[in-house]
Design a binder for these strands. Structure first.
Lengths: 343, 343
DNA sequence: TATTAGCACTCGCTAATATTGAGTGCTAAT
DNA sequence: ATTAGCACTCAATATTAGCGAGTGCTAATA
């Protein structure tokens, strides 16, 4: 990223700050009034022309004010922006807004969404922790009917996964309970991958009739790993309404493209999965290659991870590119941190 | 509902049929062309004037064509409409589009939504069966940590409910398993209300240390009954996109009011709960008192119920008031019937 | 008496035109 | 190097004109 003269930075700064608030192109006269270096509109215009040449701002049409480009935002975020510190009081408020007694992780994630929504007025998204690397706490087989067995897996962190598998024959509940107990004996805080090895080993030692049942379970392990068969238990999306209130989506065509983009959750899931394994804040702006579907949208993401070491998920905030980064970035960051503590 | 002359009925019929397709006010000339009784536009106009006086149609403005009112639709549905029979082949197709092997009820309900969406191009909604009257199949306690116990309840029909309860002391898993076994011995196809009585009785006989734990569970039963604490596991909503494509929502204001109305799911839940216990098809039109939130929308609902007798839920279809009732009504009806069979 | 042709009238829709004003780039003066 | 001054651009808004689909009424007709 090219270096920018202090004066240039200040002009860019005020353009973006103002554009974030009003969503209207910003003119030279306004900047001249705001700027600490007392310059006339004409001088500002010269600076603006340079900034435009460098690609940080552009004019929607001849003789309109200037609007930040994606690179403009990027420069602003990386070099100019000083994010607001969250006050101790605000932190305490955020923390206390979580009600964690007797709630499973799903509800806690929803609380995070609501909190983010309240504070930011943008659209929060949360990816639930994946189960592959999470340690199993408990496994249980319950007979539903002749050939269907319900497998309940409880993971560290309070995540419960229910799967129905087809059995090869009619198992009795007592028989199933025996296997449950047996398996629970060896589970003992292993994750699925490890457990798979142990179970396969065990089969060799003890070729009982539940050989095939176990096969079914192992197959099922792979299911849990690879297939998210209900997106609704994996990606949580907060209220869209706030986004629709933003002026850039105040016409029919744009609001429709927005709805269409969110209808298929895979784009969002992909984005959140990208950042899940990485530390810290990630920001996708405007027409980034990773987030090119909707022009004019930005996404701030952060990953969370329990201290016990099972894999975490990520949270994010979707807003217009002209979103209030100074507030949004530390908020996303802190809520991710809160989630780490809570889980 | 007032009686209508056959001639009047025919005119009303063609107005509605045409309006359903084009969404434009229908003029006298067009009706004169369609009508089997060969009348001139002028005569049709006379009839239209009468129909307007009776409140079945209205003019959006002087010298526009006529548009059906809510009472118009009501009369049409109750007295004129002949719903299309679904052919055997279509029925077979619908039935075979369900993949029920190894799927829990939630996924089956989602399949119903997708099917309805494909056929109707409106917005399907499904209310999951409530658990109060459903028979319990299995109950299981799993220790999460010192004071948190996960209670898993499996209901007939494949519904699984997970609840975390706070224990009064630190239970060992072995201890909990014993209670699980004990409870499972007496569950045996009772529903929660019945079970509650049995358990309370049992407590008197056998004042063990799990007295207080059971108390916690009983309290929890009430929770399952009264509180739906995650709407997302209760009400399933299909794709909104189809609705937004309808011409009545083709402007910014209307689309926003629509989104806002659906953001809060309680209205829809209330509506579906109203019809859950009743047999057959229910239709809410336009500005019915039960469904007055969004003008121009209609809802068709039907309840489903498993044969084994546990309480069912209901499915519905939200579309514009000018929806294709002839197709939508039998489709909702048949899919509800399919659900009865499958569950 | 029921029906219809004829006609003047209404009013939303579309396109064409005029007006406004915020903001610019350039030039010449400071 | 900075800036006042000025002509110019162009979206947005308001204004006007014309079209045409559809009406209600009246008088003629079967």
């Amino acid at each position: 990223m090219e270096e920018l003269n202090e004066r240039y930075q200040e002009v860019l700064y005020y353009i973006i700050e103002e554009y974030i608030v009003t969503a209207n192109p910003v003119g030279s006269k306004f900047i001249a009034g705001k700027c600490s270096l007392n310059l006339s509109p004409a001088s500002i215009r010269n600076i603006m022309a340079s900034l435009e040449e460098k690609g940080y701002i552009y004019q929607p049409y001849f003789s309109a004010g200037r609007v930040p480009t994606s690179s403009g935002y990027k420069f602003y975020i990386n070099s100019i922006l000083k994010t607001k510190k969250i006050s101790k009081q605000q932190k305490a408020e955020m923390r206390s807004s979580f009600n964690i007694s007797g709630k499973d992780i799903k509800k806690i994630l929803w609380q995070a969404i609501n909190l983010l929504s309240e504070i930011s007025h943008y659209m929060p998204i949360v990816l639930a922790p994946e189960r592959t690397y999470a340690n199993l706490l408990h496994i249980e087989f319950i007979k539903l009917d002749k050939l269907n067995i319900l497998v309940i897996m409880v993971f560290e962190g309070g995540f419960v996964e229910n799967k129905i598998i087809n059995a090869d024959r009619d198992y009795k509940q007592i028989e199933l309970s025996k296997y449950s107990i047996k398996l629970n004996g060896i589970i003992n805080g292993h994750n699925i991958d490890e457990l798979k090895d142990i179970v396969i080993e065990d089969i060799d030692k003890d070729r009982e009739s539940f050989f095939s049942l176990l096969n079914g379970i192992i197959f099922n392990f792979d299911l849990v790993k690879n297939e998210i068969d209900n997106e609704n238990d994996y990606l949580f999306i907060g209220s869209r309404m706030n986004l629709f209130d933003e002026p850039e989506f105040s016409n029919y065509e744009k609001i429709k493209s927005l709805i269409k983009a969110f209808e298929d959750k895979r784009t969002i899931i992909k984005l959140l999965e990208l950042t899940k394994q990485k530390e810290g804040i990630h920001i996708f702006i405007g027409s980034d290659t990773e987030w090119s579907d909707i022009n004019g949208l930005s996404v701030i993401t952060a990953s969370y991870r329990s201290k016990k070491g099972f894999a975490g998920g990520s949270i994010g905030l979707i807003g217009p590119s002209r979103m209030n980064y100074a507030l949004a970035i530390p908020t996303v960051n802190y809520i991710a941190k809160l989630l780490c503590d809570i889980i």
